[in-house]
Design a protein around this nucleic acid. Structure first.
Lengths: 126, 126
DNA sequence: CTTTCATATGAATTATTGTTCATATGTTAT
DNA sequence: ATAACATATGAACAATAATTCATATGAAAG
């Protein structure tokens, strides 16, 4: 147990008298912790999964590519609401789209979506 | 292409004239889509991953169990902020804790955290 | 080129969430 | 019992985010 000399920036945050973590652990944490920017992006990505409308959209797309209007009908929501959410999913590269005349078909971008959602489901099931 | 007769509840949501998805697809979607309650819980779970403070806490706990105060120091945040976030992580059963005298040690609850975060990282890397 | 239909988007509104501050709880030592 | 310390928590405030509404863009058909 020793005084804190962990972070490069020492701010005026209140702290307890002794830290329990040993030097070795602290070094490991600092080594293995990705940059703030990456952690921020990671949180932003999970935020996308953190809305039931978007989760439903992803589940719909598990079955087949689908146009905005079909998704809106399946989920019983307005075209606008779905379009806004599809934009979020698109920006996170979780879905891709192709245009066919007037209609735009959306589909899943890669298999990480499946894995992430399945792991989430497994966790819930425990 | 046929008129919409998908959802059991037909609300006054605006809709396009024709749906593109075939009956077969629609049946599959309705069969494979989990109940609303489960989808809500799933979104709630991912919401927990959708904050960089909580992501950082999880990364710290990847290395070792740790007390609230150590986490606060490592992340250069107040004890209160960390405690509030640990409560969220606790409620989602992503972390567990044990008391040792005055201090409370938190650790990861199961391996889904690892898998989910790793998949998120992989997705970002692409 | 005008109309129609599917989709996208900006702005406003409402709802949700993270942090802070003050204080409470719970544990150990005196 | 009282003091000291670690943690937890309620309320307030500030920051984000989801949906709605009105409207814009873009494509096909007349």
């Amino acid at each position: 147990m020793k005084e804190c000399d962990i972070m490069s920036v020492q701010n005026d945050v209140e702290r307890c008298e002794y830290i329990h973590a040993h030097d070795e652990i602290i070094t490991q944490v600092n080594q293995n912790m990705p940059d703030d920017e990456i952690l921020y992006d990671l949180a932003e990505l999970f935020k996308i999964f953190g809305d039931s409308t978007r989760i439903k959209i992803l589940y719909v797309l598990f079955e087949s590519e689908m146009c905005v209007c079909d998704i809106a009908q399946l989920l019983n929501m307005t075209q606008s609401a779905i379009s806004h959410q599809l934009r979020a999913l698109k920006q996170s590269k979780l879905v891709k789209y192709r245009r066919e005349g007037k209609t735009v078909f959306y589909s899943l971008a890669d298999d990480h979506v499946h894995t992430i959602i399945n792991q989430g489901m497994e966790h819930l099931a425990e």
